[in-house]
Structures are given as structure tokens and as C-alpha cells.
């Protein structure tokens, strides 16, 4: 009996603690500031995107070491040679695919899961693929903890896409590639949009928009991006 009581107390305490965190998110102000200073000021105007950026707790997607820097204007390392993108880039890529409720979006390169979470705030379902098992498993746990039930994570090679659930209204590729995988073009709906960074993984890359219309595929240069870590303030 005492054990049950203890468990109930513990569960109650945990719920209280979680609730407390939810109510008094210490990063809420930082997040609002991030949206105002880094995203709105750079001409991101889509309300659903701005709302999503305000809602997703970015600090939960970065390693504990970097939590204080989570809302800074730059990418951060997440281990395995990967980074979580700069907030503005996440917002920019999200806005570019013009997400709507009812959309089915494919993401290649889950990384921390942050981009998937932002998309999940807007669209019906997000299918995301991560090739590095450790990153993929950590992202699954993180997204579950944050109750993103509409995000489906697969640990696999992103080259093949996710044929069984395609075609997709939009595809977001977060890892630089030396080619656009033909299966992804096939799995993109006619009129669909794909965003993909092109260039060396640690140089300034060019973000490209790939559009499929009437059996022709066109690309458009968007803007240069960097997926390298930025300076830390305090060590």
C-alpha cells in the first residue's frame, strides 16, 4: 500500500512538475523574442509558421550543454557531425512549402526533430526519415515526450523516400546532397514543392526550390544558408 501511495505521489509530483514547466516555461519569452527579432524582422509573414515557431520548445531539441543558446540566431551542434538549423532557416523553409492543414509532408534528415515538430504544428502529418540511428531514436523519444503524435519517424536511407505513404504535398530535405534523388521527385505530387540545400556540408550552401509541374522539373535559387555551428557566448 505504501508503495502504491508513493508511486501515486511520485506520479502526482511529476505531473505537477511537468505542468509547472508548461505553465512557467522559462524560455517562453526567449522564444517570442526569437520570433520577433530573428524571423518576423526578416519578412517571414505566414501566421501559421510564426505561431508554430512560437509554440515549439526549441530548447528541448538541443543538447543540454547548449540549452541556453537554443534561441540564438544560429545553428547548434547536436552530435554526429550534425546541427539543428538556425531558427530563421527553419521558418523560411517551412514558409516556402506553403504548408496547410491537410498536407502530408516528407522530411529527409530528422536530426533533432525540430523541423518536423514545427511542420507538425501546421500540417496533418509529417513523415520524417533519419539515417543515423542514434539521432533517429533520440528524435522519436523527444517527439513522443512532446506529444507530437502526427510525426512519424523512420530510421532509413532517405534516398528511397517513403513510397508506401506518398505522394507528398511537399518535401523538405535538410541534408546537402550531390543529386536530387529520383524517388523523391517521383513521390512529389504534381504541383508539389521540394526544398533542398545544395553545396558542401560545411560551406555556404544554396537553398533550392524544386517544383514539379506537367512532367517538367524546375529549380530556383533561394538563399545562401550555413549549417555550421555558430559562436557560443559563455563557456
Amino acid at each position: 500500500m505504501s508503495k502504491i501511495l508513493f508511486s501515486v505521489c511520485l506520479a502526482g509530483f511529476s505531473l505537477f512538475a511537468l505542468n509547472g514547466e508548461a505553465q512557467q516555461d522559462p524560455f517562453e519569452e526567449a522564444r517570442k523574442l526569437m520570433v520577433r527579432q530573428q524571423i518576423e524582422s526578416r519578412d517571414i509573414r505566414s501566421k501559421p509558421v510564426l505561431d508554430a515557431m512560437r509554440a515549439v520548445p526549441r530548447h528541448r531539441f538541443v543538447p543540454a550543454d547548449y540549452r541556453k543558446e537554443a534561441y540564438r540566431d544560429g545553428p547548434l551542434p547536436i552530435g554526429y557531425g550534425q546541427t539543428i538549423s538556425q531558427p530563421y532557416i527553419v521558418a523560411y523553409m517551412t514558409e516556402l512549402i506553403r504548408p496547410e492543414p491537410g498536407f502530408k509532408v516528407l522530411e529527409i534528415g530528422t536530426g533533432s526533430g525540430y523541423q518536423a515538430a514545427v511542420l507538425a504544428e501546421i500540417v496533418d502529418s509529417v513523415y520524417t526519415i533519419e539515417i543515423v540511428e542514434e539521432l533517429g531514436l533520440a528524435a522519436v523519444q523527444r517527439l513522443q515526450d512532446l506529444s507530437y503524435d502526427n510525426v512519424h519517424v523512420k530510421i532509413a536511407d532517405g534516398y528511397d523516400g517513403w513510397e508506401s505513404v506518398g505522394p507528398f504535398d511537399a518535401i523538405v530535405v535538410t541534408a546537402a546532397a550531390n543529386f536530387v534523388p529520383p524517388p523523391l521527385i517521383k513521390q512529389l505530387k504534381d504541383g508539389g514543392r521540394m526544398i533542398i540545400p545544395v553545396g558542401s556540408p560545411f560551406q555556404v550552401q544554396q537553398l533550392k526550390l524544386v517544383e514539379k509541374k506537367n512532367q517538367q522539373v524546375r529549380t530556383e535559387n533561394l538563399l545562401p544558408v550555413r549549417f555550421v555551428p555558430f559562436t557560443r557566448d559563455n563557456d
Partner: peptide, 16 residues
């Protein structure tokens, strides 16, 4: 998982 087709045309539809 290592595929290589640098600068491949978007008209290419076969596997890599």
C-alpha cells in the same frame, strides 16, 4: 547508403 551522382539531371528517373 553511399550514392554518388554529382549534378545529376532532374530528368533522370532510374535508380542510383
Amino acid at each position: 547508403a553511399l550514392r554518388y551522382a554529382p549534378g545529376l539531371s532532374l530528368a533522370y528517373e532510374e535508380g542510383i
